[in-house]
Computed example of a mutant assay.
Amino acid sequence: MAKDRFHPSSRGLSHHGMLPLFSHHPVVSEFHWDHSVWGSSWLFLIVSVLGYVISVQIVKMLLSFRRRPVPLGPIPALYNFGLLVASVVMFAGCLQSTMAEIAETRWLWQRSKTPFEWIICFPMGTRPAGRVFFWSYIFYLSKFYEFTGTFILLFQKQNLSSGHVIRNAMVVIMCFLWLQFAQSLQIFVLLSSTGLYITMYVYLSLCRMGYAPHFENALRYCQIAQYVSLLLASIVLIGLHYYKEGCSGMGAWLFGAFLDLSSLPFILVVNKQKKQRHVFNNTQKGSITSKTE
């Protein structure tokens, strides 16, 4: 059953002659994660992650002698716009590919599994091939692009914690494990993450255009909602794994769960620091105003 899951059958969407834009192309539908795919080796993963961490420390040291930010012009705006476009494409592509896989292969497992269960729990023996894994691969590649954002923050002389760098490196490893071990729950994580990114980068783009919408709290609530939904989905995953036929890639899922739990306090601390700075700035402004009066 798992062998045939990602090979189109004569049934499903292909029978209707009109396929979604992001799921019918051979590059998407015939994707296979193997050593011929760029970035698929353990050596590449280790070298790229270590190179990122070391490069950040070198750039930080070099910029420590400079007091003012490095002028970057439109680069930060273009970077955010690129991530926004990529997130929209990945969200639409993964959603369409998921629906295509369900339509084409549901007849293989309709008696033992519902579409929701398949989205949460890949059957044991699932191979990392086909549409949804293609978009997981694109998501994996996008994490290397996000490394650029770290250097933009450094050039802008913004406070960059070691937690930010470590989390970026760990997310790349997590996405690699998705593909390497055909991890269950990755469809849910990819859709929720790209949906959150779309909201976040729309907000940042509006801020850069001077509109400055007051949605910062809403973004934080969306992030917390994602964590809660992932927690509930993880509980369902554990239940399906132990009380049904088992789920693929549970070791990789444990790594991702540990990463999410370890990063949650970091997010809460950062938000608390932002609030404290906001209160401090307002207090300073108030004291200056009272003195002038």
Rank of each mutant, 00 (worst) to 15 (best):
181 F>Y: 10
118 W>N: 02
11 R>F: 07
244 K>G: 08
242 Y>G: 12
200 M>F: 04
248 S>N: 14
258 F>V: 11
280 F>D: 10
262 S>C: 04
270 V>C: 06
293 E>Y: 09
117 E>Y: 03
67 R>C: 06
246 G>P: 00
196 L>H: 02
291 K>S: 11
142 S>P: 03
2 A>E: 09
70 V>I: 13
244 K>V: 08
259 L>C: 15
177 L>K: 00
81 F>K: 01
269 V>T: 09
189 V>T: 01
224 I>T: 13
227 Y>L: 13
168 N>P: 01
153 L>Y: 01
134 F>V: 01
212 A>N: 05
162 S>H: 08
271 N>Y: 07
75 I>N: 00
146 E>I: 02
52 Y>A: 15
55 S>G: 14
100 A>S: 07
66 R>P: 05
255 F>V: 07
128 P>Y: 03
159 N>W: 12
99 M>Y: 08
179 L>D: 05
290 S>K: 08
276 Q>S: 14
256 G>A: 09
145 Y>H: 04
265 P>C: 13
231 L>C: 14
29 S>V: 00
286 G>Q: 12
150 T>E: 04
23 S>P: 11
212 A>V: 00
150 T>L: 04
61 M>Y: 11
10 S>Q: 12
165 V>T: 06
24 H>Q: 03
166 I>F: 15
249 G>A: 05
102 I>C: 05
284 Q>G: 10
271 N>F: 06
206 L>H: 01
12 G>Q: 06
100 A>Y: 05
60 K>M: 15
93 G>E: 01
152 I>G: 01
146 E>L: 02
56 V>I: 06
57 Q>Y: 11
166 I>T: 14
257 A>T: 12
69 P>N: 04
106 R>E: 04
277 R>Y: 13
29 S>K: 03
17 G>P: 09
284 Q>L: 06
67 R>N: 08
235 I>F: 10
244 K>Q: 12
193 S>H: 07
201 Y>H: 14
132 V>C: 05
82 G>E: 03
70 V>H: 04
252 A>L: 11
291 K>C: 14
48 S>R: 03
255 F>K: 13
227 Y>K: 09
284 Q>A: 04
83 L>M: 04
190 L>D: 08
138 I>C: 03
14 S>M: 09
73 G>N: 00
256 G>Q: 13
32 H>S: 15
43 L>M: 15
167 R>I: 15
70 V>Q: 04
272 K>Y: 14
119 I>Y: 00
293 E>N: 14
67 R>E: 09
92 A>Y: 06
140 Y>F: 07
248 S>H: 14
117 E>Q: 15
188 F>R: 11
236 V>H: 15
35 H>M: 08
127 R>E: 07
160 L>C: 07
248 S>F: 14
30 E>T: 15
116 F>A: 11
84 L>S: 04
221 Y>C: 07
198 I>Y: 09
111 R>H: 09
152 I>T: 01
282 N>I: 08
104 E>G: 07
242 Y>Q: 12
138 I>L: 06
41 S>V: 11
134 F>A: 03
30 E>M: 12
49 V>R: 08
90 M>L: 00
88 V>N: 09
165 V>W: 07
6 F>T: 13
242 Y>N: 13
290 S>H: 05
91 F>L: 07
152 I>K: 00
164 H>G: 05
90 M>S: 00
25 H>F: 15
182 A>Q: 05
17 G>V: 12
292 T>D: 00
269 V>N: 09
35 H>F: 08
58 I>R: 07
